[in-house]
């Protein structure tokens, strides 16, 4: 069960949305339609904000957005010395999608890489239409992306892409989880023999289990090392966890994954063994159990042991 390198990369949310290299000309300045000035209005604050949000977050271009909106742009926005009202509100419209793409691109770097710029942008556009941000933070904007990919008709190779996204989602969750001091490495082995069956292991919060139909751990590693990502079929089981503020990916066997899953679900060690037997029609070997607990303790996956 080799540990991969720590993923200590930065993950600064795109809060505030200062998008760089913004050139609006191709989309905003290309429409020659003349302005049609409306008389000034008495649009109240709430209606104005609803209107502006609907235009800024519209999935089409700003002209389509304005056409569908309930209030004419010129009713609400003044021209400047150089820009028409629609061009001015178009600045916000362009920046909105850039911000969403940037935020999800940080959390789903490998996915963005394998999809390529254009397809990833298309995916983000479709995704935020269905799952727009409802939080003060962008950190959780992508929480539904794996499930969205699984049902998206836009993409080819959906199973691999969903698996890769699931791994990247687990990594962002683990990155942000609460910090808990892990148990010392010898804590499990120091439980009195008569108490082992009834003992419950409390995992650290920064731990997620990911099972996949493709070897997404290798795919992710390839991206990290700037090698080409090649989807390779094969059941994969991964524990994603954080230690000393670095995010790690630990590959597991099917049996280890199942046993750890039982423990994380709150089963006692005794009942985890029973469930393991039911699943694999054999008991875990003494040696297996020893190795698992040694490796998991050394990786700092456990926060506490509850003994009745």
């Amino acid at each position: 069960m080799p540990l991969s390198d720590a993923e200590t990369g930065s993950r600064e949310s795109g809060v505030g949305g200062r998008s760089k290299n913004l050139d609006l000309r191709p989309t905003i300045f290309s429409d020659p339609r003349p302005p049609t000035p409306d008389p000034r209005s008495e649009v109240v604050l709430g209606a104005l904000q609803e209107w502006m949000q609907s235009v800024v977050t519209h999935h089409g271009d700003v002209y389509e957005a304005a056409e569908e909106a309930s209030i004419g742009v010129e009713t609400v926005i003044l021209p400047s010395a150089t820009l028409q009202p629609i061009q001015r509100v178009g600045i916000y419209h362009s920046m909105y999608m850039l911000r969403m793409i940037e935020a999800l691109g940080v959390d789903y770097g490998a996915l963005a890489n394998i999809l390529g710029e254009e397809t990833f942008e298309e995916l983000v556009r479709a995704y935020v239409l269905r799952f727009p941000s409802r939080s003060y933070t962008l950190n959780r904007l992508g929480d539904a992306l794996p499930e969205f990919i699984a049902t998206s008709k836009l993409l080819k190779g959906r199973v691999f892409l969903r698996d890769l996204a699931s791994l990247e989602l687990a990594m962002t969750q683990v990155f942000d989880e609460a910090e808990t001091e892990p148990l010392p490495g010898d804590a499990v082995s120091s439980i009195a023999p008569e108490q082992i069956a009834g003992a419950r292991i409390v995992p650290i919060p920064a731990l997620r289990l990911v099972s996949a139909d493709y070897d997404v751990n290798e795919a992710f590693q390839a991206w990290r090392e700037e090698r080409a990502i090649k989807p390779r079929r094969g059941k994969t089981w991964i524990a994603v966890h954080r230690r000393d503020y670095g995010v790690f990916r630990m590959t597991l066997t099917r049996e280890a994954f199942a046993f750890l899953g039982f423990l994380i679900a709150g089963e006692t060690i005794g009942s985890a063994i029973t469930m393991f037997h039911r699943r694999f029609r054999r008991l875990p070997e003494q040696n297996e159990l020893f190795t698992w607990f040694r490796d998991w303790s050394a990786a700092g996956l456990f926060a506490a042991i509850e003994v009745d």
Partner: peptide, 13 residues
């Protein structure tokens, strides 16, 4: 303002 109707545009509107 940053959004209405429960949404957040994540911009300083």
């Amino acid at each position: 303002w940053t959004g209405v109707s429960g949404r957040n545009v994540h911009d300083l509107l």
